[in-house]
Design a protein around this nucleic acid. Sequence first.
DNA 1: TCCAGACTGTGACTCATCTGACAACCCGAA
DNA 2: TTCGGGTTGTCAGATGAGTCACAGTCTGGA
Lengths: 225, 225
Amino acid sequence: MTDDVLRRAPLFSGLDDEAAGALDASMTPLTLRRGEVLFNEGDDGNQLYVVTDGKIKLGRTSPDGRENLLAILGPSQMFGELSFFDPGPRSATATAVTDVDVRSLGHEALSPVLREHPDVAMALLNQLAGRLRRTNEVVGDLVFSDVPGRVAKALLDLASRFGRKADDGVHVNHDLTQEELAQLVGASRETVNKALADFASRGWLRLEPRSVVILDLERLQRRAR
Amino acid sequence: MTDDVLRRAPLFSGLDDEAAGALDASMTPLTLRRGEVLFNEGDDGNQLYVVTDGKIKLGRTSPDGRENLLAILGPSQMFGELSFFDPGPRSATATAVTDVDVRSLGHEALSPVLREHPDVAMALLNQLAGRLRRTNEVVGDLVFSDVPGRVAKALLDLASRFGRKADDGVHVNHDLTQEELAQLVGASRETVNKALADFASRGWLRLEPRSVVILDLERLQRRAR
DNA sequence: TCCAGACTGTGACTCATCTGACAACCCGAA
DNA sequence: TTCGGGTTGTCAGATGAGTCACAGTCTGGA
């Protein structure tokens, strides 16, 4: 049920059922098709969103048109908070990677909640701190790791969030093209393709369209460091 | 007065004089010499710090010993908040770049303030969101820009925070060795040195030990993009 | 005042990654 | 069933930046 998905969002932690219900009621549901854009880098807007189903990608475009993905977000994850807490134009473009359902929340609706429920503010601080931690990690990876290492790391991250364990390995339906995967790790599609092919030839994983099956988690983890 | 410096910290915005005084009183002052380490990556600890004088660098070390700087912090700036809001080991090492004065604050002292002053929580959310924005920007730069571009950008950032305008240009006493500057932009010392030498030969800036004078802000800005 | 150690400046060599250029493939829509 | 666009797989250069290896310079202590 999408209600469960919502309740699992950090935004709702620390709220009793009544308050959660009230907050939920003030959110607007929204559906997008794969490829549709929710908002663009540079847009105004202070809505905050929670994914209830599907995946969203957050990306930035360089002056010369190349693209870089900051994150892939799945159910229960929040985005759009930057312009929400630090008013200003959106710093990234949000695009649907699959068909998606999201809920949006305006500034007016959340502010009173933050005032009355300090726990929610704490949960959000916690959430942002965690996000900052992970982003710092990404910076480190870009500086220290080579492309195959970053690809391995990205696959493991996707696996931990979207993977399903099966007899033959961990099935990761990431829904990303190799082009998108490349933008996510900050490399060219060709180089990422070679890294994937290499992993596959070593028997660490099996490639499928927009999906991989991880066969040897151990080695992939070792390659990621 | 250091009190002014403190009051300018986001932590204190939204507090009336009384509350600010109380919070101030619960902070412990601390002095470090250039090179001294305040805390290490991996340490436990949930203190939050505010710089009152001097500069602190936050850095991470890769498994093979190379180093990467996440930020250079000056007066009024806060750090150590990650382990504060998202309990866990410190994700970076904090080292004094110059002799420094800082104030530290324990979790026990701030929690009640957050509960009673929602404005402070909002200011902190705002602060973290801003930090996240800038870190995302850094990720983009690492992916899109070459080393000279990143060096130019770093110099401009340092100039905006530590620069003093004079007749012959903007004097930026960054107090960083070229090695540190290189770690900040994620490049080798040699490459950074060459970029700086190139900028100097074009007349965009004049090199001084641990300091630069920016002579042509315009061009440097253009090179940064 | 002198020295040692830490910084800065610069070259030659190497290598990972990007670029550009194709061929092969797959799947959905006419 | 066939066509076409969006994918995936590979190759042969080109190149930015890292590493190594010095020499020159500055600076703070003894």
